[in-house]
């Protein structure tokens, strides 16, 4: 096993790349702002136009930060799920977390018509969306945890998570069938996912959840490494399986739940980034994989966001469509070229 130190060059390179991409991401947008001005705005220097300063600090910077948090958080939770379920196709959403969030939001938006008037308007404000989707994922999480405590087999948890997903999707479908076109559109827009329009307060909560999740993931690296051998071997090495399973599921839920609450369901980052990372990092050691996946996740999310912005045009594409358009072919390419999807 190579020591983490021998990977330091790759990490320095990735960190530099992240800084460059972050800067590029902030520079690109519908309004063209010269690089030097962007640099000044970011470092607190003088900016020639106050509108530029406003665009960068109140719009682009929060959006880029959200992209970093969303990318790293989702990618880490994908890695955790793949190791826990010993399944290369596992991602943060296999537990039904995003379906839970969708259900919460669907009930809020599509059901808001029932309350009508002022209450209805208040209910569909952005903060209540966040709360609804957080509640939705939290409920699904509680259900998954209840199952985890009863069922020993992790594969069963995986299947049950998928079933929760199907049930909530069905409820959403029924709700959509009975709602107005306007409400439906609002729901569809939420499901596109969005990195923009985050308040600094929201980013604060999101970064708290993401950082806590990542720290717990890193602390669990030793057990995660043992899990690579399979459940029985891990047990024989002294890993307390029930506790470890619980910690990993709760961590994933904190990460994926908070991110879905703020940015909507974002596909493929959790599934694809760990696989992309494994193309460069041959180690299976989570002490190396976790920081690497974190960096790759941030970089890829920033790139996806820059593409979604359609630089130099006025249009913004839904971020969820871009991550799927980039993520799905990557997974297919990996399968075709490598014949196997390892984890």
């Amino acid at each position: 096993m190579k020591s983490p130190r021998s990977y330091s060059r790759i990490f320095i390179l990735l960190a530099l790349l992240l800084v460059v991409i972050f800067f590029l991401n902030v520079s690109l947008g519908s309004v063209t702002i010269p690089f030097s001005e962007v640099f000044n705005a970011l470092t607190g220097g003088e900016v020639s136009k106050s509108s530029w300063q406003y665009i960068i600090t109140d719009y682009r910077l929060p959006k880029a930060l959200t992209a970093v948090l969303v990318g790293s958080g989702l990618a880490i939770s994908g890695l955790l799920m793949q190791t826990l379920f010993r399944n290369p196709l596992a991602g943060p959403f296999v537990l039904g977390l995003s379906s839970g969030a969708s259900l919460g939001v669907a009930v809020l938006i599509l059901g808001a018509g029932v309350f009508g008037g002022v209450l209805g308007t208040w209910l569909t404000s952005s903060w209540s969306l966040v709360i609804a989707s957080a509640l939705g994922s939290f409920l699904v999480l509680l259900a998954v945890l209840a199952v985890t405590l009863r069922v020993k087999d992790t594969m069963a948890i995986l299947i049950i998570g998928l079933m929760f997903g199907s049930v909530t999707a069905a409820v959403v479908a029924v709700l959509s069938y009975f709602s107005s076109a306007e409400k439906l559109q609002q729901y569809v827009f939420w499901s596109f996912g969005s990195l923009g329009n985050q308040s600094w307060g929201g980013i604060g909560i999101l970064s708290l959840c993401t950082i806590v999740g990542i720290i717990i993931a890193f602390i669990s690296s030793k057990s995660l490494n043992a899990l690579l051998l399979g459940e029985n071997y891990a047990r024989s090495l002294g890993v307390r399986m029930k506790r470890t399973t619980l910690v990993i599921i709760i961590t994933t839920s904190i990460l994926a739940g908070a991110i879905t609450a703020f940015a909507g369901p974002i596909a493929f980052i959790g599934l694809a980034v760990p696989h992309i990372t494994r193309q460069w990092i041959t180690s299976s050691d989570h002490r190396i994989l976790i920081p690497a996946v974190l960096l790759f996740g941030s970089i890829i999310m920033l790139v996806c966001d820059a593409v979604a912005q359609l630089p130099f045009s006025e249009y913004t594409l839904p971020i969820n469509a871009i991550t799927s358009l980039i993520g799905a072919p990557v997974v297919i390419w990996l399968l075709v070229r490598k014949r196997k999807l390892f984890f």
Binding site: M1, R86, A226, L229, G230, T282, S284, D285, F342, F343
Partner: peptide, 23 residues
């Protein structure tokens, strides 16, 4: 123990696999 099952992660190198015994 040495079990009949192979490690779940086939991506482990031999060194990594053996090193996990030191956990």
């Amino acid at each position: 123990v040495v079990l009949t099952e192979a490690p779940s992660s086939k991506n482990l190198s031999v060194t990594e696999f053996i090193s996990l015994g030191r956990q």
